[in-house]
Design a protein around this nucleic acid. Structure first.
Lengths: 258, 258
DNA sequence: TTATGTACTATTGTAATACAATACTCCAGA
DNA sequence: TCTGGAGTATTGTATTACAATAGTACATAA
């Protein structure tokens, strides 16, 4: 009637974890709503039946998952987690699992054409003129590697936003974080990007006439070109990204965490 | 010569945050490698020039981002964040930002064909025979909605793994979390999935002969079919996922957090 | 000899307390 | 109305201590 599978490992959770779960539950169930201030640490400690250090450990955990943030008067306020939390987690995973540039690029190869295709179907005049302005700007900075990379980033961001797909924006963020620095290295080696500008123009023209097929195709070409550029520049694309970034001194983790 | 933009807000970070960043940096840069044990709290405190409670707050933050986990002898060990961390963050973002089923599906529409295409180029005999076994199993459970969904999930997982792209696996996880329950709802309404089995078979055959093009095409058809199924079943695909899941009682967040 | 019990030790978990640093409030005074 | 400063609330950090637990080594009993 009893076998060893019945024993359920029983490990008590430490108090700081119980405290975290209690708070998290209150937030998830809506008893504490985003924007609301948490009680002060001392009161929290009393209410939860633990001491301040314990409460603080729980708060740090919630802080890291984005459920609370430091508010106006230094007080902790409940918050809906920002997309950055998800994006940062992804970024970390990419670095620490030794994912290669090629893998990142393959993702790019799936996502950017998708973005272009969707954008072609739904883009509005506003974003369209933004992209046009971006193209003009790109012409001007064709000889300035740094500015060119920035313009390129903006172009792709605009397309992604034009796609109207928020899941795409989430997934794209960490990808770009790695690829665009690499592009900087490529144009430093191979010179300015006339091909880049051409491709961007073709995509733009396709968006203008709502031609999803063509937008996708040109974007695909464009991304493939990028990989060729990396290969020609000698970037070891099958190495883990963190290694490549180290060896090439690519700027990364630029975003300050505060 | 000086305007107010010059003043850079200067806010000193608290010590627990500096400590966290110091440790995080060491981990991200590979000075502390996954699997390695951290020094005991007391020593950490000494090395960082802070006290134990402060170190503990930093550790709780790292714990929440998955960079360290409780190891064998209760000691903290460095860890490559499990995909779960990234996936959970993404999931949270998807829910809390009111992303719609259509948006999730569009991502699926980009990622699954990509997976199939890559898999066709690189798949090995081992995984291929796994997929074959999965197909045979799928035939058997065609009349059992629950088992069928499970088989479907397994099929797509196998393809994704066969792609050899770890970034794809990361990005795919939260997507599937939402879509597969929906598929369950669809077959409950529309009956068994002969079309599903056909599509799976075509993809498999393409993989077998390393025909990436065909694998991609059939997967695309398959995913498009899935959306049609959702529409026919009356699933309100333009509503935020969390709302749909509520209304339809789809199983979600099944994964226990402990 | 093997197994069981037992003290010992290292480390984490938690409490209690204290004080410094800072941000906010409010009031006096120019 | 603005400025400056005292008072206060709250967070940030240190200090110390002790309880709980997992690992270790050794002793004892079968």
């Amino acid at each position: 009637m009893s076998n060893k599978a019945d024993i359920k490992s029983l490990k008590r959770s430490p108090a700081y974890q119980l405290a975290e779960e209690a708070l998290r539950k209150m937030i998830m169930e809506g008893k504490l709503k985003p924007g609301e201030m948490l009680p002060v640490e001392h009161d929290l400690a009393d209410q939860l039946g633990v001491t301040r250090p314990t409460v603080r450990e729980a708060l740090r955990k919630l802080e890291s998952s984005g459920l609370v943030v430091r508010g106006a008067r230094r007080r902790m306020v409940v918050s809906a987690p920002s997309p950055r939390i998800a994006s940062d987690a992804m970024l970390q995973a990419i670095v620490l699992h030794g994912i290669s540039y090629r893998e990142i690029w393959q993702m790019h190869m799936a996502l950017e054409p998708m973005a272009a295709g969707l954008a072609a179907e739904t883009i509005d005049m506003d974003l369209l003129s933004n992209i046009e302005a971006n193209l003009r700007h790109t012409e001007d900075v064709l000889e300035d590697p740094e500015a060119l990379v920035e313009a390129d980033i903006e172009f792709h961001d605009l397309i992604a936003r034009a796609s109207g797909n928020h899941a795409l924006l989430l997934a794209r963020a960490p990808i770009g974080e790695f690829l665009f620095p690499a592009y900087g290295a490529v144009i430093n080696k191979l010179g300015p990007g006339q091909r880049l500008l051409d491709a961007h123009r073709h995509v733009f023209n396709a968006l203008k006439v709502n031609d999803a097929e063509t937008a996708r195709d040109w974007m695909t070409k464009h991304i493939r070109d990028f990989l060729r550029g990396c290969e020609m520049a000698g970037l070891p694309i099958d190495e883990p990204v963190h290694k490549v970034n180290q060896d090439w001194n690519l700027q990364r983790f630029q975003r300050e965490s505060a």
